[in-house]
């Protein structure tokens, strides 16, 4: 069981954002957003949104290590969740893995990796999307 079983249409709708980090940019104020927004919260009706691909490079804004996982994430625990500030400005929430947990601090440079996020049981959908790893990190086993 995943944290919240969702249907196929929702998962498909999110593929551009979750696989390729497609966000939005307002052509009027040039603010970039992730995920996609239809309305620029700053310019509202005067704004003009277009899709934009984000680089996947950024740094850790805050982080935590989860020891009490939600259902569907038991096998991952303990795992690290962070708010990442992308170099284009938007922030997002993602897991940080494939690196030494001790290296993850506020300000640590990170880059996007493509991973399985969760699955809806043994026969359900497998949901993929972005996670992040430290830029200097190799494939150390996560340890504290």
């Amino acid at each position: 069981m995943s944290s919240m079983t969702v249907g196929l249409p929702l998962t498909w709708r999110r593929i551009p954002e979750r696989y390729n980090l497609i966000g939005s940019e307002c052509e009027i104020c040039h603010t970039k957003y992730f995920p996609v927004r239809r309305i620029c919260p700053q310019c509202r009706r005067k704004g003009k949104m277009k899709e934009v691909k984000l680089s996947g490079k950024g740094k850790v804004y805050s982080y935590t290590r989860i020891y009490a996982p939600p259902s569907g994430f038991e096998l991952d625990a303990p795992y690290m969740i962070a708010i990442i500030e992308l170099e284009e400005g938007p922030r997002l929430t993602a897991q940080v893995e494939d690196c030494n947990a001790r290296d993850v601090k506020i300000g640590t440079p990170v880059e996007m990796i493509f991973r399985k996020i969760q699955e809806d049981g043994k026969e359900g959908l497998i949901h993929y999307g972005f996670k992040f790893k430290t830029v200097s990190g190799t494939s150390h086993i996560l340890q504290e």
Binding site: R14, S62, T64, I66, I81, I106, Q118, G129
Partner: peptide
Amino acid sequence: AIALGGAGDQEWELFMGATFPALYAMMARR
């Protein structure tokens, strides 16, 4: 806990494996 997760952004926080304690933990860290 899943029901409480509905108070956050289901598609962009909870889906990624965040929990409510994790969100407040990141406030605490800052």
